[in-house]
Amino acid sequence: MTKIYPDRLSPQQDDFYNALMDAHAGLSDTQSHALNARLVLLMANQIGNLEILKDLMETGRSYCDE
């Protein structure tokens, strides 16, 4: 099920997005893919709550193309 999450990034959303793009700068596709996986794991650890993480995974998954 898709859950709607309140915005917690603004007003720093542009700073965040730019930093994320900078983190990927100069990487190959494979390296970018691996970086994304590492970031998910790091962020999961920071969130540290299995219920929330499962909800997030379900919401993320709900957007997959049929």
């Binding site: 709607i4 915005d7 990034l9 959303q13 994320l20 990927h24 700068a25 596709d29 957007y63």
Partner: peptide
Amino acid sequence: TPAEALFRSEALRLAHDQPF
């Protein structure tokens, strides 16, 4: 880059209903 294009396209996809 493909990474930039990927993040943008997923941000657009989520934007249809996620406020952030």
